[in-house]
Design a protein around this nucleic acid. Sequence first.
DNA 1: CGACGATCGTCAGCTAGACTGATGATCTAT
DNA 2: ATAGATCATCAGTCTAGCTGACGATCGTCG
Lengths: 146, 146
Amino acid sequence: MIAGQSEALASRLGYLLKHVQQQLAAAAGPAMAPYGIDGRQLAVLTVLAAEHPLAQHDAAGRLGVDRTTMVTLIDELEAKGLVERHRDTEDRRKNIVRLTEAGQRCLDGAGRARDEVEREFLAPLGDELGRQFVRALQILAGARQG
Amino acid sequence: MIAGQSEALASRLGYLLKHVQQQLAAAAGPAMAPYGIDGRQLAVLTVLAAEHPLAQHDAAGRLGVDRTTMVTLIDELEAKGLVERHRDTEDRRKNIVRLTEAGQRCLDGAGRARDEVEREFLAPLGDELGRQFVRALQILAGARQG
DNA sequence: CGACGATCGTCAGCTAGACTGATGATCTAT
DNA sequence: ATAGATCATCAGTCTAGCTGACGATCGTCG
């Protein structure tokens, strides 16, 4: 029970979801810090690693963020030398974004740190409930807009 | 699967949590609209109904929001005539906040609407997994800061 | 009794994140 | 070739939330 938390809210889905999300973000922040990136930036690296050369627009789609937000995100990652932007030779409207060597190394380290944070975060649930929790989230994330 | 969603992110806890939270918020917004309040304001009404006369500071603690945020929240609810502010006669630093008649009616209606949204939101999980999901959230919300 | 530190509500100002709308470049299709 | 779509970008805006300062009030400890 969160300090001072209300009984009346303990079963309110919106309240629970929001606070749990914030707690995870609060735990993940410090864990990412040594690698110089935050959770959103790590998500971009993760997507790029999986589907390597990806246009900005497509990366935004994968992450569910706005196109203009992705501009900023890539700006930041590029400034750190973790990704490179190239004009697509086949469709010169597009920017192809790719991980650099440094980006790959950063992803390796930060990704491990993130996984560790997630594991600790779910630990209170135990194995079985933890798995079901993640499965439920996957279903809910996919149930709409699919 | 969210349109264009990345396979690589499907098991990333932060991503899932954030998106599921946003989807619920997106669903709840329109449902609250007829009652003229949003989810945060409804949460305040819910807390007040449960522990009726409550100082602003304590209400903020129950909801896990900043004291200055609560000022704004109460401002809004007061402007709509849903709550009343009174100076506490026993400790005149405190504002006692209480539901008005209109506030109670609003809570009844909006609360029902919210419950319905939550039910529909969890429907894809089925009964059993839905219950476990909520239980997991409660554990996670309470596991830290407790 | 009186002074000091803590608490409560308020306000002004700042920050982070994300959106809208406009623009220029480019592509596609007719 | 021309009209309409698409992509990246930028400027401006909006929201939620925070920090820090303030006045008023309380409790406590000499």
